[in-house]
Design a protein around this nucleic acid. Structure first.
Lengths: 349, 349
DNA sequence: ATGAAAGCGCTAACAT
DNA sequence: ATGTTAGCGCTTTCAT
């Protein structure tokens, strides 16, 4: 690979001048020289050495996509459709802005800090971390971060919060379920923290505002197991008889439960209605197609990178900001309209 | 960030010695010194500057995951479940081996060459390219490459071909369909090149060996459109009446067609049988669950990185190799057994 | 308009 | 066992 120095030698100029024309700083270079250097650059297929450039300029051009990984569950984070869509958005946007993307799954925060510092990453998008982890990283690595689905954020410098209307979204779909005449509505999730908790709150609010009393048992705890299985399937099947509708925290669980219940003979939505959240491919591939809440993960990824670049290039824009993306109701076929049926068959109620 | 030089100053030794203990080359360093330097390193949270290291050592530790992108179809390559699984395998394996992964979608081969050279990538895994593109890249960038799903490979130096039993896999599933009593079996794909062509060949061979004559019309061309739609759905629906079974080139199309046909009133597998290929989540989420051909994309990703690392670290292992992964039949519920039914109702035939 | 030169932080060949 | 030193290729300040 030819170097700037060699190019300079061939063109009969200094490395400074070559460097300048490479970077388009041609205000102070004579057109003739520019032309000549361009030609040599072309002819010898000059390719910059990014390591050298980064070392000298103290930048890296790298945007790290850092995903939290739980050491024990050796699962592949990339197969989560949310992550896929997000990553696609990040990559396309980064490319457009001239940045490079490095992906990394981190189990250990200390190790992660070293990674960020070692590569001198210009910015990171953080997926799956909680507030205190973000805080701890930012303490050492004071660089722009886009944080995805982090709650109770302190207003940290260098951070752009790329959020979602989690509560609102769940509120909307539950409100819709209620409007269809349901009263016995369960909320199904595998935990009650962060994003899941926000969504629960939305469910709870919709219920409350409709005057429906929510009992603790209405939170149905689903226990995930290996390979898209659920550990407490039997229990969930039985409990499904207590409700006319199940609002699931994700399309993933909605699809799983929808199939399992139907395989065991329950009809959806005739016997139980089921809703999802995210509107990824699952919601459309399943039958009946899922009524769900739509979020555009790809767009969130793109936005993350755009804000990141702004912070990187204009340090005065590094104060904390929060951008909450919309989560809108998508009505398909998985919720039964009890009211309608009632009209034709008053006995039913 | 503290540098080696500063560490050396504090510990009262030379940078060489510090560098040596950092890299564990402690054979020629006295235990006391090692100990002392370790302590200083710890105390000051020494973090290497990877740019500097790469520049000096002429390595990068980067494995590039390069995906072909077609400029016009602005689609997100990451949502393809094959890519997701593969990427997960690559990332976990790379991390384990101490490499970093940079992802990149390339439309332009020239630009890609520059990227590889600029970052001085140690190795690449290439997804979605054809032979001549690989060849052209390798001409300039003589570094280890793992090529995924490339056909008619020349026996290129520096290449490990990570293949799949495409033909065999399709052969097996079609053979199975035939064993269930089907004779009118269509093959469905959106093109007839590379991997799709190999699979077609497998279909064709299974048919031929069973004495079934394959007509050109038995290749059903599906035309993809925006957003998981298909442009010629009407046509496919109509043509589905000509067959008792459709062997699809992917789970993706199988799931799509299975749903569309059922939505229009055809029963699967009672009216038409449908099979997929890949055995990704789609095959299990759909009803009836798809009989398909299983490949382990994650494992292929891991293997790609392992071979890559071997080639990087032991240049004598750089001769061309090919590793073909198995593709095995997975029987689920989407193929009707005509024979069985025949037993009970001889009229049927 | 152009060039000289001092680093950036690290590695590694060579001395001692 | 430990140190000296010359780069790696590029950016950038400061001269001219």
């Amino acid at each position: 690979m030819i170097t700037i120095k060699e190019i300079a030698g061939i063109a009969g100029v200094s490395t400074t001048t070559v460097s300048n024309v490479i970077h388009g700083k041609t205000k102070e270079v004579s057109p003739a020289t520019v032309e000549r250097i361009q030609r040599v650059l072309e002819k010898y297929h000059y390719t910059p050495n990014i390591s050298a450039r980064n070392l000298a300029s103290n930048k890296s051009g790298i945007i790290g996509v850092i995903m939290k990984r739980y050491r024990d569950m050796e699962n592949n984070r990339f197969v989560d459709p949310f992550v896929s869509e997000l990553l696609g958005g990040i990559e396309s946007s980064a490319k457009e802005k001239g940045y490079y993307v490095m992906v990394y799954t981190a189990c250990d925060i200390q190790e992660l800090k070293k990674l960020i510092m070692s590569w001198n990453m210009d910015g990171m998008v953080m997926v799956g971390f909680v507030r205190d982890e973000i805080y701890s990283i930012q303490e050492v690595c004071r660089r722009p971060m886009a944080i995805i689905d982090v709650y109770n954020t302190l207003r940290m410098e260098n951070c752009i919060n790329i959020g979602l209307e989690d509560g609102e979204g769940m509120y909307r779909v539950v409100q819709y379920i209620i409007s269809c005449g349901h009263k016995k509505i369960g909320f199904l999730s595998d935990n009650d923290t962060n994003l899941d908790h926000e969504r629960y709150l939305g469910y709870e609010r919709a219920m409350r505002e409709s005057g429906i009393f929510v009992k603790p048992e209405d939170f149905i705890h689903i226990v995930p197991a290996e390979k898209n299985q659920v550990a407490n399937l039997e229990e969930i099947y039985k409990r499904s008889f207590e409700f006319t509708a199940l609002a699931c925290v994700s399309d993933y669980y909605a699809a799983l439960i929808l199939n399992e219940l139907q395989d065991r003979g329950r009809k959806v939505p005739e016997d139980v209605s089921i809703t999802g959240f995210d509107d990824n491919y699952m919601s459309q591939i399943v039958r009946p197609a899922l009524t769900t809440v739509r979020q555009d993960a790809e767009k969130r990824g793109q936005a993350a990178v755009e804000y990141l670049c702004a912070m990187i290039e204009e340090p005065e824009k590094r104060q904390y900001r929060s951008r909450i993306f919309p989560a809108e109701l998508v009505i398909r076929d998985s919720v039964r309209k009890i009211e309608n049926i009632t009209r034709y068959d008053p006995q039913e109620v």
